[in-house]
Design a protein around this nucleic acid. Structure first.
Lengths: 332, 332
DNA sequence: CCCATTTGGTTAACACGTTAACCAAATGAA
DNA sequence: TTCATTTGGTTAACGTGTTAACCAAATGGG
């Protein structure tokens, strides 16, 4: 069933039917509108998005790129990504758009895939600086980044510096002085910024961070278990540890447990993200909370502002973070 | 940059360019092929999926429908859905297709949304019987269901009966006799089938399930907490509980803890799904494990078989389940 | 009554690939 | 040499909506 069929059945031209469908009612008489609408609903007709997209050069599709962190368990390896995705889908659907998802391969592939579809907007989750720069140069459609540190893009992130700062400050206030830091080692970007905040909080107290307390670990559970064991047997004993993700914290707690240490009695743990999972763990995890819904909504706002105004936006929203206090930290 | 532009630059017709792009090389001389490919790569040209889709009447898009369980936290409210989604994306991408995601509104909306896009296939996660039946009647494109009990569809599920049976059997073998069952109350479908298996295992041992041990709860954490408290103060004391999802089990463990009971010392808990989160909890959760990757792959196989053979398939795959033993059950 | 405007349309070009039908030149077989 | 086939293309219709340009009839103002 096509526009043409409807037009024939109603005895009018396709232009008229098109006008009715698109609400250009000023061009059509009341009776004609009613007649056409009746035929449309009787036949359960829906216009072809493909044809419409072809001529209007807009697709109502938003492409979303999820970093494929793990070979073995693509995007769900990070529940954080899922949370974001979920809210984005919600936002995009409410705008009357469709969401197309890709986990990354090479940058080139993504562009190819999405640009063939004439997508109206692009959202990149956790892209690296270099990817962002490549995309910035080559893509002309509205693009919003989440958690990417790069110049000249529209980014929505969190106040990473404050996240690191607050985590350390919280532990200091609880009487801790010997604090470890667990996470990937980087020189710039999200983690490095958090680390800077963390160190500055220590410095304010006249403490110096000792680099052998930097427990290197990817943000996966298994890495955390290893890191937890390492932490348990650290020569330079610590009474607390700040972890760069909740999942990592869960792993570290497990590793500590396996090494015979209790959380928080023997050692305190602070996570990062505040995933729903924090409530499932035992002890429930005290963590640096980022408002994921807010991030998704901000990203949506930004993207559709760019789409609707047809003007690029360059900005860097930093959503505030706060400590979500649960039961994994002991008052010394 | 369009096909026409490429053709003009190469001094050939669009048909020839099209043939080169689509690998119909038998119609084109080697030199022409090289010349055209050079121009294509120099100009970074990608054919418009929209135009191609319009004339070929196939889109290379697979629509995936995720049940919107919670108003507040759409599909991530169930990490299970995410897991499935993640593997499906993987499968779909490897087939050279694109994945479009929608969380459900009304059945009508979904169909509308997807059919306008001329999608080549549809995957429904956890649809109800009635929805499945409506879609079965109204949609002619290849459709695969996950975890849906309905006639005349291509379904991929698990052996729910055996899941319930094994959970009970496992606890019985550990010496438990007073076992509760926690989950939504239903008369047919996934949960009802598991419950039947559960009861049959008890009956085999000469035990009768007492209905006041059916702790009604949705499969959310907060519901679980309430259910755990109820369970703790059940007059008809139980030593173990089988829960209809891992998330529910986490909630129940928390509810029990808040009521002063220890898991597994005072009461044992068995979950269902075997999400990665089971390793994060303390005690780590013993659960009925379903192979999510396998389900996703089977669903993919089925869908693409239907797409490629252009023949509908009616079947009901039941992936086997097994107990994943961890530390939430005590030997009596 | 006459010209201007509004009402309610129609026509046809267009967006961009795909593919069936067609064709000329070159090659080959008898 | 002549007819048949292969090689390497071209042409044009097609799929499905959208929209600018156009038009006839009706209405209105002076």
């Amino acid at each position: 069933m096509t526009l043409k069929d409807i037009a024939k059945e109603a005895g009018v031209s396709t232009a008229t039917v098109s006008n009715v469908i698109n609400g250009n009612h000023h061009k059509v008489s009341k009776e004609t509108i009613d007649k056409i609408q009746k035929i449309i609903s009787e036949n359960d007709y829906t216009p072809s998005a493909t044809a419409r997209s072809l001529i209007k050069k807009e697709s109502k599709i938003i492409g979303v790129v999820v970093p494929n962190l793990s070979e073995h368990d693509p995007f769900s390896s990070s529940p954080y990504n899922t949370q974001i995705l979920s809210w984005l889908e919600n936002y995009i659907r409410n705008q009357g758009y469709y969401m197309m998802i890709r986990t990354v391969g090479r940058c080139q592939d993504i562009l190819q895939a999405f640009l063939t579809w004439n997508i109206d907007g692009l959202i990149l989750l956790g892209a690296f600086k270099e990817e962002a720069e490549e995309i910035r140069e080559r893509v002309k459609i509205p693009t919003v980044y989440l958690d990417t540190y790069a110049e000249g893009i529209a980014n929505v992130g969190i106040d990473d510096y404050m996240g690191g700062y607050l985590a350390a400050k919280y532990l200091l206030n609880k009487g801790h002085r010997d604090i470890a830091f667990a996470g990937p080692v980087t020189t710039e970007g999200v983690i490095a910024t958090r680390f800077k905040g963390f160190c500055d909080a220590l410095n304010e107290k006249g403490l110096e961070f000792n680099n052998n307390r930097y427990v290197e670990a990817m943000t996966f559970f298994e890495d955390g278990v290893k890191a937890g064991k390492k932490l348990a047997f650290l020569k330079d004993k610590c009474t607390a540890c700040v972890c760069m993700s909740d999942i990592l914290a869960f792993g570290i707690m497990e590793g500590l447990r396996l090494s015979g240490l209790r959380v928080p009695e023997d050692i305190s743990v602070v996570g990062f993200d505040n995933l729903p999972e924090c409530k499932y763990s035992n002890p429930q995890l005290t963590t640096v909370s980022q408002n994921i819904k807010k991030k998704a909504c901000l990203a949506g706002d930004l993207l559709f502002e760019m789409i609707n105004s047809k003007k690029p936006v360059i900005c860097n929203h930093q959503v505030t973070v706060e400590i979500e206090e649960r039961f994994s930290v002991k008052q010394l």
